[in-house]
Every structure is written in C-alpha cells, then in structure tokens.
Design a protein around this nucleic acid. Structure first.
Lengths: 221, 221
DNA sequence: ATCGTAGAATCGTTCAACAATCCCACAAAC
DNA sequence: GTTTGTGGGATTGTTGAACGATTCTACGAT
C-alpha cells in the first residue's frame, strides 16, 4: 500500500514550468532573490537551462501566487510589499485565522495538536537559547490555526499570505527577530485554548495581529 | 483628472495571455465551456488567433485560479468540482464570511450598504416575479460580506471560491433555482444586522452554509 | 542641469520542429 | 466475451530562432 502511494508520487511528475516555479519560489523565500529584483528571462532561463517560453509559464504561475509581479514589457520582479500590502495581508489573516480559531471545539485532536506542537517546540528551543527558526515556527503555528478549518483552499491561500509577509519582513530587514517578540503571545493563546477560553484566545490572536501589523507597517514606511 | 485616469487605463494594456485568460474565464463561467471539457491547444489557439505558447501562458493563469485543471501530457480541462471540493469550498467560505460579518459594527456605511443593496434589489425583483439573475444577486450579497474585511486579497480569493461554486452548480444542473431558495435567508440576515444582532446574523449565515452545502453535495453525489 | 535621441537590451509573440505521451481502434489470447 | 497487447495517429511538452515593439541607457545638444 505504501509502495503504491510512493509509486504514484513518482508517476505524477510535474512539468518543467511547475518545477521551475517551485524552485524559484524557494529561492525567493529563502532570500536568495531579493524583493524588487528583476528576473531577466535570458539570465534565469540560461542559468536553469530552460527555454524562455517555459520560463514564462513558470512566471505566470508565480505571479498568480503573488511571489512575482509582472509589469508589461518591463519584466517580472520579486514582489516588494508596501505598507498598504501589509495592511491588506493582516486584514485577510485577521478574518481567516480568528474565524478558524473559533472552530477549536469542533475539530479533531490531531488538528488541535498541529496548533500546540509548534509553540511547544519553539518554547523548548528558546529555553535552550536557540533562536534560529523562530520565523518558521511562528508560521507553523499560524498554519496550524488555519488548518482547523479543514479546507485545503483556505490553507493554500494562507500559505500565499505567509509567503508575501515573508517578503515584507525581508524588506523591513527583520526576518527572524520579528517573530521572536511574539512567542509569548502564541504561548498565551495556546494556554487560553487549553483552559477552554476560546473567545479569550481569539481576542488575544486579534491583538497579536494588531500589534504585528503596526510593527511591520512602521518598519516599512 | 478623470481624463488622466482614463488615459492610465489605456496605457496599462494587458498582455495577450491575460486577455485570453479573461475571455476564457468568462466563457467558462457563463456556461459556454462546460465542466470537464478538454480545451485543445490547437482548437482554442486557432479559434482565438493566438499561438500555442501564449495560450499555454493563459492556461497557467487559469489553472492557478482553479478555473482549469492541468493534467500532465493530457491537456487542460474545465474544472469539474466533486462533492469533496464543495465541502472544502464551504469550509473556506464559512470561515471567511462569518469572520467578515463579525466586523459589521466596525466598517464604513458604504461597506454595509454593499451588503444590503443586493438583497434589497433581489427582493424587489422577486416581488415583480422576475426570477432572473438570482444567482448573481446572491453572489453580490456574499461578495459584499467579504468586502467588510476590506482586503482585496480576501475578496479576490472569495471570487475564486464563488467561481468554483458556479462550476459546481452547473455540474448539479442548478444554476439559478439553487439560489432562489436562499433569498429569504439573506433577507433575514440583513434584517438581523439592521437590528444590531450581529451574532444572530452570523449564526444565520452559518446555518445557510450548512444547508447550501448539504443541498449541493447531495445533488453532486 | 534638463531635454532629447540613437542604439542596445529586453520583452511579447509567433512559428516550426521534434521527442514524449496519450488515446483509440483493432487484433490476439485466454 | 472480456481482457490483453500493439500499432499508429493525435496532442502535449519543450526548445530555438526570429522579429516587431517597448524600455532602458548613455551620450550629446540646448
């Protein structure tokens, strides 16, 4: 059974455009390709060994993911979120995550664990003085919250929102330190959830968004 | 000032791929291209007078919008939502719209009016016996609800969810009649909002989603 | 310092080509 | 008779070249 599933994964090979898009997304999100950078078709295509046409298909995919911005006759650029973008992003996250968190009492134990575990791990690392990966830990926490809704579409869209915010962090030159501040906040939310105080947790989450938005917008403008 | 804005609109011409994607989306949503239909590159490209490469860029855009489904080496197809898809769609809408509706007291009067007006117009039409456009009226109502969040990203994603649901309606062969049933529901929600009973309205909206989902899933399986 | 312009670079789009894959119909085997 | 190969035809995946259109850049004129 597991071998069948594995074989299926092998069979479902992706197109070149898809693979190129995935790899470019990685390069953008890990900071190798900075926000605002123009991606020349010739340069990228030459480096990756793919034709311009295929590369343009990949660009179309990534522009729909809001990772890249397509400017007609000027080229594609790594997105460079503005203060307005950040406000828009947090407005969306507020609705999605606060709405999802309210479902806490109606979801499976596995879903709840996906919210708790990232915070527990982050706390453990912080106590050891390990301050790496605080960013991805924070995102995993919020990804877990969205997962409470049980909708792949909602989770996928949230991933796009997270990706865009990571670009904003980079513009603000605060990739890791930013999240660090908010670990106690996440901890408090999990605590409240454990006490069954869902409404309190939602309120706390709401305040977290307000604070984070203000912080990030401030650094951007 | 208005001439400047107009000129700007002219300047910002879209690429061929973008225009083709827009027109194909229309054709799909108005039912001319049925769910499950395969879109041959040669046929569509020939009919529209665009090259295969440009057409493939358009396909990539629409596949990210979930209007089309790309199956490797088999072609692109108009999406044909399943019962599971519908459940996923409503799970997302429940979170988004219930979350947005809770913002009722904190938004501008224009935003509130964008929720009320579609229902008012639909009621007026229904009283005259005009049962056309009930589908788009319903969507406008829900679009207004999402608009309360004030996030273009959230509104755009919701539009994608609506579009996918319209495909599901078509598969269930219930494009207009489906929505008709739910006008009283919308009316009740607006009424409750007018009375300041936001929590009640959210509850009502939640029940609407439960009923609509069950109805549509039933017709699909 | 501003403006304008020629030339280079890049994008937008098309076309032709070919390998890889899929689909379909037909024949062979159980 | 249903299943199992097995061709060939159609379609997709990808590339490379080509060329008009647009943008950028650097240089010279005012």
């Amino acid at each position: 059974m597991s071998t069948l599933a594995q074989g299926k994964a092998d069979l479902e090979r992706a197109s070149t455009a898809q693979k190129v898009a995935d790899m470019l997304r990685e390069r953008v999100l890990d900071g190798e390709l900075e926000p605002g950078l123009r991606l020349s078709e010739e340069a990228i295509g030459g480096a990756l060994g793919v034709s311009r046409n295929t590369l343009r298909e990949a660009f179309r995919l990534l522009s729909r993911d809001r990772i890249l911005v397509h400017e007609h006759s000027r080229g594609v650029f790594v997105r460079r979120p503005t203060g307005d973008d950040v406000r828009d992003l947090y407005a969306a996250r507020r609705v999605i995550e606060c709405g999802a968190l309210r479902l806490w009492n109606g979801v499976t134990e596995a879903q709840r664990e996906a919210v708790r575990a990232p915070v527990r791990r982050a706390v453990a690392r912080a106590e050891k003085g390990d301050l790496s990966k605080t960013g991805s830990a924070n995102i995993q926490f919020h990804r877990g919250i969205v997962g409470l809704a049980g909708s792949t579409r909602l989770s996928d869209e949230s991933d796009r929102l997270f990706a865009e915010l990571m670009l904003a962090f980079r513009v603000a030159q605060e990739v890791e330190a930013f999240h660090q501040t908010y670990l106690p906040w996440n901890r408090k939310i999990v605590e409240l959830l454990g006490d069954g105080a869902v409404d309190q947790a939602v309120l706390q989450l709401h305040e977290y968004f307000d604070a984070a938005e203000q912080d990030l917008v401030g650094r951007l403008s």
